[in-house]
Amino acid sequence: MSVVKLTVENFEQEVLQAEKLVLVDFYADWCGPCKMMSPIVDEIAEEESEIKVCNINIDQAMEIAQKYRVMSIPTFIAFKNGEEAGRQIGAVSKGELLSLIK
Rank of each mutant, 00 (worst) to 15 (best):
K94D: 02
Y27C: 06
E83A: 13
S72N: 06
T75V: 04
A91D: 14
E46T: 04
P33G: 11
A45M: 01
I89Y: 06
F79M: 08
I56V: 11
P33I: 09
K67D: 01
P39L: 10
L16D: 14
L98S: 08
E84V: 12
I44E: 09
S99G: 12
E47M: 00
E50R: 09
E19C: 07
A45Q: 02
C34R: 09
C34N: 06
I101T: 02
V92M: 13
E46V: 00
V8G: 02
E84R: 02
A85F: 10
K52T: 14
E48C: 08
E43V: 12
G82D: 07
C31S: 08
S2D: 05
K102V: 15
V3F: 00
L6N: 13
M37R: 03
G90C: 11
D59P: 00
T7C: 12
L98C: 13
F76S: 05
C54S: 13
I56N: 05
T7H: 02
E12R: 02
F76H: 02
N81A: 12
V24C: 12
N57R: 02
S49G: 05
I56R: 02
G86W: 15
E83L: 07
K5V: 09
E12M: 02
V22M: 10
R87I: 01
I40S: 03
L97C: 10
N81L: 11
Q17N: 14
E47V: 03
E50D: 15
F26C: 10
R87Y: 07
A45H: 03
V41P: 04
A91Y: 15
M37G: 11
E43T: 12
V8A: 11
I89V: 15
S93K: 12
M37E: 11
A45W: 02
F11Y: 11
E9Y: 01
A61G: 04
Q13E: 14
A65W: 05
W30C: 09
N55T: 10
P39K: 11
K35D: 04
I44L: 03
I44H: 04
K20R: 14
P39R: 07
W30D: 13
R69A: 06
F11M: 01
S38E: 12
L16Q: 09
D59M: 00
G90I: 13
T75C: 05
I51D: 01
I51S: 01
G90N: 12
Q17I: 00
V15M: 07
G90K: 11
D59F: 00
M37V: 10
C34Y: 10
L97V: 12
K67F: 00
Q60N: 09
L6C: 03
L97S: 10
S72P: 01
A65Q: 08
D29Q: 12
Q13T: 14
K52H: 09
K94M: 07
V8K: 12
D25L: 09
